[in-house]
Design a protein around this nucleic acid. Structure first.
Length: 835
RNA sequence: GCCGAGGUGGCGGAAUGGUAGACGCGACGGUCUCAAAAACCGUUGGGCAUAACGCCCGUGCGGGUUCGACUCCCGCCCUCGGCACCA
């Protein structure tokens, strides 16, 4: 079973030397050479259409140009590249693009710290990283490279912003924003971790200011829908939790006695079954009714409480450990269901941004309300009774379902039914409505920094907020600016930038000085890669049609609720604007794990590991293979230099095996040994390909390592034909090519094949040729392995038992017993249950 | 607290109901060498036993299902990741 491959009949001096075993594997001598040739000949260039080939868009999350490609990048990008190469060799027209997510804070911080221009800083870093990516031997189509800081890119951020603005999906609003004192800018909710800045760890403060938002929450319901995409469940769950859908009821209390325009106070609850147990109402400190309802005697204490709450950091305020506090505002609300007047309090455990910012207090059935009521001496009334409740006081809130009590006409109903019946009554009486709320808030995307996309908005005294006309884009970022941590965008100190004329009325006006969150850039970059040089639109419809949605997206899980959610949101908006035809941007997603070193995170400062010296010493192929051999790609790994020896030895073995002179072999092999090698070749092909498809690089490499051992033994037996040997070598090289592209290319040439191995098809396998002729059948007695029998693969059940009973070992166990059961698993085992 | 992933030799890991420890590292022994390195060959979960065949134990812990469990079920413990006053 020999595959036919084109051969050049290369007979160069180098190849002859090597064939005599004098030429050793020196990675440095071959890697750069092939990298240059691949690029010169455009081996990885992906035209939009190739006749007879299906397109495959293999996308790996593009990096921020921090300056160096570190070994963690290698871990991510080598795996992604191996998979893209694998798909290419399966016959797909593969696009594997690379670019740089080049706006962002580090460049600007470098400018502040060392007085370097952010653009220079960024572009120097990009140049270095491009070089390092080349040294990795990745199969990028560099013709499609994009950099988000270039005006050719960010003008389309501005364009898309304007399209969202027109559609009412981008808006400006005043409110409390997450402020990072260290980064001197606001950040989105998704960028706050444990109350601290995701980037620098500084506690986040609340600051009231005008901010720009994208109305992502309008898509909450559709974003929950993830059935159509093949993503890790972990990411889907994280997104579902982040969106946080809950069903409940807006329930209105009567406050008509205060002579206000507002006669009602709306609360939100998911437990309307407990509504007869309300003994107080709590408002968030920011709730507008707080000021209006506070009575004169309470004015001072309420003002003091609110001031204190404002000073409390986000970390403290959201800590579940923290004591629940509040003060009465002196006003009362009437529960329209039972006419009870209950006190209204202000408490900072109620969040202004969730639900209605007002909560009905049911101490008997909510932990927080229980603690709160105990502390302030408020009544606790049970309305959902636990099974067998004797009417005594609760020692803690009862949260589970039960039977309605103290609930007027609903008494005796199971509370699950109570929820529905009470909601029905409330809707019928028009004192409330069922409603779905989401935890996710709108995406706050304006940043008070320089190194980002300027928001194309002009403020005019007469016309107000005026969008910059599309034909005036891009609003360019000025090259020079004063970089100081002032808490305002450096653009605000640049009169040339700020001062403009109103596009509507022509009078002097001021530009918006905030820039966009860099996650805007990455929300649609996958579309730009389809037509990166398009100058009339963000992307070309035809090109997008032929490449998108992304067939395989690869990257880290740290973006689960940021980039991956924003990109889905953008896609749905663009679809609704008629710009794309598909519902989801990324059809399949694979998350690689994190590479660590010595059980610690690899970091430039504390635990560095630079790839360049490793490449010099071991070669890119060895490092790629080692990283992929460490363990399953999705689980991450722990780097240690020791392990490199194994893959290095293996690559040397491939080199040496490929170089053996087939003239040393007899022209015909011994059928038995030959069959052995052919079987190994087909088995290996099957294993390696199946595992590569599923990103199981580690077991794929293990299979190939075993195969080199099989080949070596077959040769030593001296009984394989040149044809079988050459086929084995071809298979070995083709299957190794996605993993170790340089050595595979070099040996492909030296074994007389035409450039390039990376344009070849992977070998196929034949299950019949891969099948064993002799199998090991295990004999178990009462489930314990007692004997192993070598039997023909097509052994029948009857024959298997016969063979088992013929064994002396088995006899010894079976004699003087009664066989109560016989189990036969074809090709695997027999199990005798004896008594 | 809630959600998710995981726990297997000295180490990285393999096996998703059927021979536990593939493959690799390391270690030990050997070949080659004046020597060392490299390379190659062999051994390598623990215990007992041995002239040999073997036998017992073993996949975080405790139960269960099954002829048979690393794998499935129930209850815990631990590690890592995410979310967390969301009414």
């Amino acid at each position: 079973m020999t595959t036919t491959r084109s051969r050049t009949g290369d007979d160069s001096a180098a190849a002859r030397e090597w064939n005599r075993g004098r030429d050793r594997y020196v990675p440095a001598e071959i890697e750069a050479k092939w990298q240059e040739r691949w690029e010169r000949e455009g081996v990885y260039r992906a035209p939009d259409h190739v006749p007879g080939k299906e397109n495959w868009y293999a996308l790996v999350m593009f990096p921020y140009p921090s300056g160096d490609v570190h070994i963690g990048h290698w871990y991510q990008y080598a795996g992604a590249d191996a998979h893209a190469r694998f798909k290419r060799m399966q016959g797909f027209n593969v696009m594997h693009p690379m670019g740089f997510d080049s706006f962002g804070l580090p460049a600007e911080n470098a400018a502040i710290a060392s007085n370097i221009n952010p653009r220079q800083y960024t572009e120097t870093n990009i140049a270095n990283m491009r070089r390092q990516f080349r040294s990795m031997g990745a199969s990028y189509d560099w013709d499609r490279e994009l950099e988000t800081h270039s005006p050719e890119y960010y003008r389309w951020n501005q364009y898309l912003f304007l399209r969202l603005y027109e559609a009412g999906l981008a808006y400006r609003s005043r409110g409390f924003a997450n402020w990072c004192e260290s980064c001197q800018t606001t950040v989105a909710n998704e960028q706050v971790l444990d109350g601290a800045c995701e980037r620098c760890g500084t506690p986040i403060a609340r600051r009231e200011m005008d901010q720009w938002f994208f109305a992502i929450s309008r898509y909450a319901e559709e974003l929950l829908q993830m059935d159509g995409i093949d993503w890790p469940n972990k990411i889907k769950t994280m997104q579902t939790n982040w969106i946080g859908r809950s069903e409940g009821v807006d329930f209105r209390f009567d406050i008509s006695g205060y002579g206000l325009p507002e006669t009602e106070l709306t609360t939100f609850t998911t437990r309307i079954d407990t509504v007869y147990g309300v003994t107080f109402v709590v408002l968030a400190p920011e709730h507008p009714l707080v000021q209006k309802l506070t009575q004169p005697e309470q004015r001072d204490s309420v003002a003091e409480y609110i001031a204190l709450a404002a000073r409390t950091s986000e970390i403290d305020r959201t800590s579940t450990e923290r004591e629940k506090t509040g003060v009465p505002i002196g006003a009362f609300a009437t529960n329209p269901l039972n006419g009870e007047r209950v006190p209204i309090l202000v408490g900072d455990y109620v969040l202004a941004t969730y639900g209605t910012g007002a909560v009905m207090g049911v101490p008997a059935h909510d932990e927080r309300d229980f603690v709160f009521a105990k502390k302030y001496g408020l009544p606790i009334r049970v309305v959902v009774a636990p099974d067998g409740w004797d009417g005594s006081d609760l020692v803690e809130a009862y949260l589970a379902r039960g039977t309605q009590v103290n609930s007027a006409e609903f008494n005796g109903l199971p509370s699950v039914e109570g929820i529905e019946r009470i909601a029905d009554k409330i809707e019928a009486d028009e004192i409330g409505r069922r409603r779905v709320t989401y935890r996710m808030r709108d995406w706050q995307f304006s940043r008070q920094r320089y190194w980002g996309t300027p928001i194309p908005i002009v403020y005019c005294d007469d016309c107000g907020v005026v969008p910059v006309p599309m034909n005036e884009l891009p609003v360019r970022l000025p090259d020079e600016a004063e970089f100081k941590p002032t808490g305002r965008s450096p653009l605000a100190d640049d009169p040339e930038f700020i001062n403009t004329t109103c596009p509507k009325c022509g009078k002097p006006a001021r530009r918006e000085t905030d820039t966009m969150d860099t996650f805007v850039d990455s929300s649609w970059y996958h579309l730009r890669f389809a037509s990166p040089h398009e100058s009339q639109a963000p992307f070309d419809q035809d090109a997008v049609g032929s490449w998108l949605p992304v067939h395989q997206y690869m990257g880290g899980a740290e973006h689960a609720v940021m980039h991956l959610l924003y990109a889905r949101f953008f896609n749905k908006v663009l679809r609704d604007l008629g710009m794309v035809k598909f519902d989801e941007p990324y059809s399949r997603l694979f998350n690689q794990g994190l590479l660590i070193k010595d059980h610690q995170k690899i970091s430039k400062r504390s635990n560095p590991l630079a790839p360049d010296p490793l490449v010099d010493r071991y070669g890119a192929d060895a490092i790629r293979c080692y990283l992929m051999f460490l363990g399953p790609w999705d689980q991450g790994g722990d780097w240690s230099d020791d392990g490199l020896a194994g893959v290095t030895r293996w690559l040397n073995r491939i080199w040496e095996l490929s170089g053996r002179d087939i003239a040393d072999l007899a022209t015909t092999g011994d059928p038995e040994s030959e069959r052995e090698l052919v079987r190994a070749a087909h088995k290996t092909t099957r294993r390696a390909i199946t595992d590569l498809e599923r990103f199981k690089f580690n077991t794929s490499i293990a299979a190939l390592m075993e195969f080199t051992g099989d080949m070596s033994r077959a040769w030593d037996r001296g009984s394989v034909s040149p044809a079988a040997w050459s086929d084995a070598v071809e298979r070995l090289l083709l299957l190794t090519a996605p993993l170790a592209p340089h050595i595979a290319e070099e040996l492909w040439k030296r074994t007389g094949h035409a450039f390039s191995i990376h344009n070849e098809q992977l070998p196929t396998w034949d299950d019949e040729l891969a099948a064993d002729e002799v199998i090991t059948v295990v004999v178990q007695i009462n489930g314990k392995v007692r004997e192993r029998l070598e039997l023909p693969a097509d052994v029948s059940e009857e024959q298997a038992f016969e063979a088992a009973f013929a064994s002396d070992k088995v006899k010894a166990y079976v004699d003087d017993t009664e066989i109560v059961r016989r189990i036969y698993v074809p090709g695997k085992l027999v199990n005798l249950v004896v008594r």
